[in-house]
Design a protein around this nucleic acid. Structure first.
Lengths: 337, 337
DNA sequence: CTGAAAGCGCTAACAA
DNA sequence: TTGTTAGCGCTTTCAG
């Protein structure tokens, strides 16, 4: 028995009856209005309005095979890092009449696989994934269902799924090079756990491009402002003298900035701090944060466009590598300068 | 003609054929497994696995009248304020087998109404709204479709929709009282545009509870860290001497903190800074931010539970007022103390 | 415990 | 331009 709450909804047949036309005609004014005579259409529209007709998405989906819903699997929403990308995806998708349901994975591949199944269960037509590290089950699922899937926040033209993102390793290299170019040799690297996070892994790999006389010391902690602060505290407590802090993400860099200020260490006079991402707030910290810009918004937009083209016109997405850019602001300075 | 990409998906009938049972039996192992004989069930499950069967959400929805999808309309995702609430909603909803699609409105009632229509079009069973200020069209839509809707981030037991949130005015009062209790009399109020934002309006109303000898000067700017910084710069540029900055939101308070540091004004020695929200990062700023805690996560959880109960058991949500709490940290201090 | 069959609301041939 | 009708994939009586 169909569950009904309140006054039952009007359906196509009800509208057809009220407008004294066939259901096909009603369907037409819904889908191809221009093919219906103006007067007829007017009557139908009046009937729809009066009955507060809302077409059943399910019924349409079952006929067209299209749900018009896409799914995104992201580590977390509770963090500025993905927010703007998701925001951009959602908003661009809207231009194509597509909706987005987002599922958070907490960076756990198993949870991710489970949530992916859940998304497919509710009928999403395509999936946005973060990075290229996934559970086998997810890969199998994508293969079997042949569901369009695009990877964001990462670029690897050879990956078996199209990646639309940026070169994290290169971004890491740029950040490191900036610091090295400034004469810094003893660098504290602040990063989040890389175990299930290939973006972080790549950035760290980029950091490793350092010349032999540069010594990098890693401090790992959570991908939060508090995590960054904790890592900085650890670095300070280690007693080792550092010229600079190189952060794998702006979020952590904010924490580093706060902790250094708390410790009375002047940035950039005593130590430089380098971020990576260029969050909106990076431009207004004190001092303003030098960082590497990651085109999060454009990435979201491009990913949405590619996905729309895929589900609407069956043209599979192709890899896109977006450029990153060094943003030199105030938190970095020549050593001893 | 049904659109099919790649190898066509197996359906119930295919599974039934493979397992040599009827479609009804397959449907049963899907929905009421315990009513099917163990051996039969095993055969069916094997067939489903082999065919990589994924049931059609649309077909189920059309029969049960349930899409298992809910919609959330929020101003923006690109801001820590809503992220943790949405995160909590999504995660709690998951426990009930419900999904969430989020739509951002940019704080524009018209956009909100349009997106609400879009959500209904894709078949959401319920709506989460932010605050009580909405376009008439939206109100009408909710009334006509009788779709379950709950308001979050706001509390008003008399509103025509159930509100699950906190008392913004009271939170504002608490923040103001803290500052006044510390002896501050010349207070710069930093806030975002309140035109379409009733939460902000209420908080400002709470600020107005100040005694007669307290003078409040308002500085309005965007609800971002940069906006907060800009507001602080304006306050400083005004030349007026302030004892304290009272911010309608932590996000802006962060900007204020940065701007004051940039201006070389010591917090809390020279001026106190008070936030409102208690974002995770508020506890690690330098100095740590005094603020009023808003139970964003619990609110999300409770709203999700209420909504689940509504759509699953038809019990309408009831208003819930969650307590706020003063968090005294380091950014506020007795005047001249 | 299992099967047959009638829909759910809509789309899309095909006819008229 | 409009109507008739056969499904889409699944759930759910109702029989057996």
């Amino acid at each position: 028995m169909t569950v009904r709450r309140g006054k039952k909804r009007a359906n196509l047949r009800d509208v057809a009856r009220a407008a004294e036309v066939s259901v096909a005609t009603v369907s037409r004014v819904l889908n191809t209005p221009d093919v219906v005579q103006a007067e007829t259409r007017r009557r139908v529209e009046a009937a729809m309005a009066e009955l507060h007709f809302v077409r059943s998405a399910a019924a349409r989906a079952i006929n067209t095979g299209r749900s018009k819903i896409l799914g995104a699997l992201i580590p977390t929403l509770d963090n500025a890092i993905f927010a703007s990308t998701i925001d951009a995806i959602e908003s661009r998708l809207g231009d194509f009449g597509l909706s987005l349901v987002v599922a958070t994975t907490g960076e756990d591949p198993e949870v991710e696989a489970r949530k992916a199944q859940g998304l497919l269960d509710i009928g999403v037509e395509g999936l946005f994934l973060s990075g290229i590290t996934h559970h086998d089950t997810l890969h199998a699922l994508i293969e079997h269902t042949a569901v369009p899937a695009v990877v964001i926040s990462y670029y690897d033209a050879n990956y078996h799924l199209p990646t639309i993102g940026y070169d994290n390793r290169e971004a890491g290299r740029i950040a490191l090079a900036h610091l090295v170019g400034l004469g810094h040799r003893r660098i504290a690297v602040v990063h989040n756990p890389a175990e299930h996070n290939d973006r972080t892994r790549e950035r760290l790999a980029g950091f490793e491009s350092a010349p032999a006389d540069v010594v990098l010391t890693r401090f790992e902690s959570a991908l939060t402002v508090a995590g960054g602060a904790r890592a900085a505290a650890m670095a300070l407590a280690s007693g080792a003298p550092f010229d600079a802090f190189l952060c794998a993400s702006d979020v952590q860099a904010l924490g580093v900035l706060f902790e250094l200020q708390r410790a009375g260490i002047a940035v950039p006079e005593a130590v430089s701090v380098m971020g990576l991402h260029d969050l909106p707030s990076a431009a207004v910290t004190a001092p303003r944060l030098s960082t590497v810009h990651l085109p999060a918004e454009e990435m979201g937009r491009r990913a949405a466009e590619a996905m729309a083209d895929w589900v609407e016109n069956e043209v599979p997405a192709r890899p896109i590598c977006l450029p990153t850019a060094l943003k030199i602001r105030e938190s970095t300075r020549r050593r001893g300068g």
